[in-house]
């Protein structure tokens, strides 16, 4: 049973197709990278998968259940792209935000998760007082605290320094390998896609490519979309990881 199954999904806004006829599936434990140009519908696809937006046509299943009947939301950790709209006067502390929605607040798990993201010292600070990078680390901690079965990240590393970015990628890869966590990563960080993702979905309002890296690297069509240099960079980094690990 796939963790995510998307079947013939179309979403329109003001009569225009934002994404159309999207079909793909993600199996358990897969690290999937979703890439595509700006406005290609990556975030829209994620919001349709999570039930935030309702598609015009098509079907989404999470853990084998139709999205309309899905209730096991604790299995999903999500980091949205847009945190810049955060109200700077919001009076929530990092501890309150990270534990948001948890039925049982466990101080030990909280401390461990915050320290994992190197923000243990910020637990009692207000989220609006932090730098964008610190806010992003807090939001990552929120997504990871339950150790969910499915992690969905929409541009997670935009504001992160290289060190935290490395921590983030290593952590999610480790979760994918050891715990069988399924990871969906929407990013413009092509290097990271090559290094960490096993499968690739290239989107430009519709699916241009969906498959493994081996297929991607062998595809001459993809050279046309990505350009030879980018395709080579992605494949080279993926090969290096494959040969080392």
């Amino acid at each position: 049973m796939p963790i995510i199954r998307v079947d013939d999904l179309t979403f329109r806004y003001n009569g225009l197709d934002v994404i159309s006829n999207i079909t793909f599936a993600v199996e358990k434990g897969i690290y999937l990278g979703i890439v595509g140009p700006n406005g290609s519908g990556k975030s829209t696809l994620i919001k349709n998968i999570l039930g935030i937006l309702r598609p015009e046509q098509g079907r989404v299943e999470l853990f084998g259940e139709s999205i309309s009947h899905f209730r096991q939301w604790e299995k999903i950790g999500y980091l949205p792209q847009r945190l810049s709209a955060l109200n700077t006067h919001f009076p929530g502390t990092v501890a309150e935000i990270v534990q948001m929605g948890l039925p049982k607040k466990d101080p030990v798990t909280l401390r461990r998760t915050l320290e994992m993201m190197a923000i243990g010292h910020l637990a009692s600070r207000l989220i609006g007082e932090l730098s964008y990078g610190e806010q992003q680390r807090a939001m990552l901690a929120r997504a990871l605290i339950r150790r969910p079965d499915l992690l969905i990240f929409d541009e997670p590393t935009t504001a992160l320094d290289p060190e935290t970015r490395e921590i983030f990628y290593s952590l999610t890869r480790e979760m994918s390998r050891t715990d069988g966590t399924t990871v969906i990563l929407v990013t413009h960080d092509i290097g990271a896609i090559g290094q960490y993702a096993q499968n690739l979905l290239y989107l430009d309002k519709k699916v241009i490519f969906s498959g493994t890296f081996k297929d991607f690297c062998a595809s001459e069509d993809m050279t046309g979309f990505f350009g030879p240099a980018s395709q080579h960079l992605i494949c080279h980094q993926h090969d290096q990881i494959g040969s080392s690990g």
Binding site: L50, G51, I52, P80, A85, F90, E96
Partner: peptide, 18 residues
């Protein structure tokens, strides 16, 4: 908990099943 999450970010709250 629901009011807190919706006030913080409505879309994030939706993704939590609220």
């Amino acid at each position: 908990d629901d009011l807190f999450a919706v006030t913080f970010d409505q879309e994030l709250a939706q993704s939590m099943g609220i």
